[in-house]
């Protein structure tokens, strides 16, 4: 995915996420739309500009809270790098895989943020519920939103490269 496309999707996700929050949606069921953009970008093929864009999106999300800079940036980079490591072993076309990846990624990102931020406490049940609740909602939306974000051509290419690699190995 091209860097401008990635950043535009990220900005739209930020606005929508803010709007959902403003509508009074309980934080437990607030989907991590920006994280889905990061997952979609990683599914399209992991690149150095991609990981830098993930970092920048995290910084923007951090800045939108005006308190601490860094936790979301670190969480997004971790998720992007993690997906870069495993994406070739995943059947990216499957919605179930996208949902599972989003579930794990949202738990990892939420935990990462909770560990670094003074606004959360992993010992508090409220925050553990929040991490898992948000992860479940994010996972439920993943099959559709990741498909919109990830460029189909690139996803197919990634799959075909993986298949050709498997054939060569065989």
């Amino acid at each position: 995915m091209s860097t401008p496309r990635f950043l535009i999707f990220g900005f739209v996700a930020l606005v929508l996420q803010g709007a959902l929050s403003q509508l009074g949606l309980p934080v437990v069921v607030l989907p991590q739309l920006m994280l889905l953009v990061v997952i979609g970008a990683a599914f399209s093929g992991s690149t150095v500009p991609g990981v830098i864009s993930a970092f920048l999106l995290g910084i923007v999300l951090d800045l939108s809270s005006a308190v601490l800079v860094g936790p979301w940036a670190g969480a997004f980079v971790t998720v992007y790098a993690g997906l870069a490591l495993v994406s070739q072993r995943l059947f990216l076309e499957s919605g179930l895989v996208a949902a599972f990846v989003a579930l794990v990624a949202a738990i990892v990102a939420g935990t990462f943020f909770a560990l670094l931020s003074p606004h959360s406490d992993l010992a508090a049940l409220e925050h553990v519920v929040q991490i898992f609740g948000q992860a479940a909602v994010t996972a439920a939306l993943a099959p559709w939103l990741v498909a919109v974000v990830a460029k189909p051509g690139q996803r197919r290419m990634a799959t075909s490269v993986r298949n050709s690699s498997s054939l060569s190995a065989a």
């Binding site: 991609g50 990981v51 860094g70 980079v77 971790t78």
Partner: peptide, 21 residues
Amino acid sequence: QVIGTAIALLCVSFLLTAYSS
């Protein structure tokens, strides 16, 4: 390269977190 960049950015995010706190 992606992993190397990610590790570097992760370090930057830790430093930023510490500095901004």
